[in-house]
Design a protein around this nucleic acid. Structure first.
Length: 592
RNA sequence: CGGACCGUAGCUCAGCUUGGCUAGAGCAUUGCGUUUGGGACGCAAGGGUCGCAGGUUCGAAUCCUGUCGGUCCGACCA
């Protein structure tokens, strides 16, 4: 490719809207054009990168036996009603819906379990056809509340999604493991350092799942991990042991209602009590009671959730715990904190004085297991300006309390496997694997005939890789002050040949020759034939992140050209060996 | 949806406090000339309903009200 024909449009300055490296550099390099909030046009160079990512991912999924298909982006409401997810996705407003001229309602595919399950039900009739995996790479839509970070979180994005169908859990396990291995190979080939962590199954549902994370400070997910045991989990999912609280030596042995005028928050209560006879009290000696409204298809429930005062409630865990309690009513459609007037109705007190004691009017009260054996705590009294001191939830609760794991694990909590302190870091989720079980096949009556001549619902798995997010993650992981440093396997071109003296016949001829020979060797090469100063060329290719560069310039009279890897040093090499050097280095880089 | 900030040329921004002549700069673009190893220089040119609507005023980019959009934080979220 000739640079003069590539419509290169780089920016010298950072666009003001871009905060993170990938967003900034992709915009500056002209890879991306913002078309609307959370909507991007993929420019020619980015299209090449996306194609390469898609190719590698497809290659690895196909190597596990996956069959590539293309599913429609518009999905009928009826299909989503059959799985029971229409309501969930409407309640969370994740799915964009559109209406055709006849008034028929469609969702814009946020994912495709329903469509593919419907397909499998029609074409897979026998256990002899199982297992089978279908996958696609296609545009997805999410009605993101707040698109941000360029390609990282957008309304419309490209994703590989795969769905496997099985006759047994064992078969699903085998494919799940094969898929995890395929992901590992794919990310290695893509030049990304990604690792699997335990994850919550979320709105997709199912019995087990792992996320593939790329470590990055700008990542939106928090990961807890243990170097000793290898345990790693998304914070939504992470379990661990919360260290015991320090002693509160002045705590009453039995509950006493105590005035705490005007102090509603944990910090205020602690400060107040410290000043009133309890100098050693800590937030960990308080019970934090958070009130929610949970909605299911059957109606609304008021819910109280208690955690130790120094810790945060994990709403994902709370949602999962409620799902188990309210399983008969179907999925939790919505979980939201109560507003002030609702809190007054539920507790008879102003916000800040709620507790799992007499006067609490909720349909379910849950508490974190950390509190289960706790004694001599402080809790709200459900009476404005009053708390109860010397409270033991197991004995003194005024409502039935269900204990479950509700606490958000933080670095320093003990690893569930080794007992050592967990560590924390941030990550970008680039892939996800789920064991769905029979959630969709049962709901949609997608069945096959087993060897026992009876009908069985498919056991299913689903697997996703965010193709466009992978590109952003790759830039986050591979850039420097000058620009992007693409891993060779996904770079838009492998090598650029830069003649630095326009009009110098010897230089131009050498560059043209090297360029043609590289192309003949299968190297994706660019020749920068633009009539601009050398400095402009160097800056552009550094920004664009082409992995290798051959400069034909002042050394040409001695028969030398410069060879440089994007993140390496300049080497002066003979013109005669330039092509062989590039070929060798590109092949080595792609092989990883 | 709550909080903070911001909308002026393709991009980055100044001007707004204290209303006033033809609305500015750098980068980018076009032409000519000089340049040619890390985003050159000179001369010239094009490009703006100052987000939109209403109001105050003799006069509004500037003040007021509303509205739309954006960025960040929070909430939310395969």
């Amino acid at each position: 490719m000739r640079a003069s024909k590539m419509n290169i449009s780089t920016l010298r300055e950072d666009p003001s809207e871009a905060e993170i490296a990938s967003h900034r550099l992709l915009l500056r390099g002209g890879y991306l054009h913002k078309s609307g909030a959370g909507l991007y046009l993929y420019a020619p160079l980015l299209k090449r990168v996306l194609d390469k990512v898609a190719r590698i991912v497809a290659d690895e999924i196909a190597s596990t036996g996956g069959l590539e298909i293309v599913m429609p982006i518009l999905q009928e409401q009826a299909l989503w009603e059959a799985s029971g997810r229409w309501e969930t996705y409407q309640a969370s407003r994740t799915m964009l819906t559109v209406r055709d001229r006849g008034g028929m309602v469609f969702g814009l595919a946020p994912t495709a379990e329903e469509v593919v399950t419907d397909y499998a039900a029609h074409v897979v009739k026998s256990h002899k056809q199982l297992p089978v995996t279908f996958f696609q790479q296609h545009t997805k839509f999410r009605d993101e509340i707040r698109p941000r970070f360029g390609l990282m979180r957008v309304k419309e994005f490209i994703m590989m999604d795969a769905y496997s169908f099985h006759s047994s859990d064992e078969s699903l396990d085998a494919t799940y493991q094969a898929m995890r291995a395929a992901y590992d190979r794919a990310f290695r080939r893509l030049g990304l350092e990604a690792f699997a962590v335990e994850a919550d199954s979320g709105a997709i549902g199912g019995s087990g799942s792992h996320e593939f994370m790329v470590a990055a400070d700008v990542g939106e997910d928090t990961i807890l991990y243990c170097p000793e045991s290898g345990y790693a989990a998304n914070v939504e999912r992470a379990i661990g042991t919360v260290p015991a609280a320090a002693n509160w030596d002045t705590a009453p042995a039995a509950p006493i209602i105590t005035p705490t005028p005007g102090v509603g928050t944990i910090e205020q209560v602690v400060e107040y009590l410290r000043a009133h006879g309890h100098p050693s009290i800590m937030p960990a000696h308080l019970v934090k009671t958070v009130l929610f409204v949970a909605k299911t298809a059957a109606g609304s429930h008021s819910v109280a959730a208690c955690v130790r005062g120094d810790r945060s409630l994990n709403e994902v865990k709370l949602t999962n715990a409620l799902s188990r309690l309210l399983a008969a009513e179907g999925p939790i459609l919505l979980l939201r904190p109560m507003q002030a007037d609702e809190v007054r109705d539920a507790t008879g007190a102003d916000p800040g004085f709620a507790g799992p004691v007499k006067g609490l009017k909720v349909s379910r009260c849950l508490a974190d297991r950390t509190l289960e054996g706790s004694t001599r705590m402080v809790t709200g009294a459900n009476l404005t300006d009053h708390h109860i001191l010397g409270f033991a939830i197991a004995h003194d609760a005024g409502v039935p309390v269900i204990f479950d794991d509700l606490v958000t694990i933080v670095p320093g909590d003990a690893c569930p496997q080794s007992g050592n302190p967990l560590q924390g870091k941030r990550g970008i989720e680039v892939g996800h694997v789920f064991k769905l079980g029979t959630k969709y096949s049962q709901a949609m009556k997608a069945e096959f005939t087993g060897a026992d001549q009876k009908l069985h619902p498919f056991v299913m798995g689903c697997y996703g890789i965010g193709t466009s997010r992978v590109v952003a993650a790759a830039v986050e992981q591979h850039h420097d002050a000058d620009g992007i440093c693409w891993p060779c396997a996904i770079a838009p071109y492998h090598c650029v040949v830069v003649p630095t003296k326009s009009g110098d016949a010897a230089v131009e001829q050498a560059a043209e020759t090297i360029y043609r020979e590289l192309a003949a060797q299968g190297i994706e090469a660019v020749i920068d034939d633009r009539d601009v100063k050398p400095g402009v060329k160097f800056k552009d290719w550094d920004l664009l992140g082409i992995p290798f560069r051959v400069v034909c310039g002042r050394g040409i009279t001695e028969g030398l050209v410069e060879f440089k890897a994007r993140c390496g040093a300049v080497e002066n090499i003979p013109v005669s060996s330039a092509v062989a050097t590039v070929v060798e280095r590109v092949r080595a880089a792609i092989a990883g």
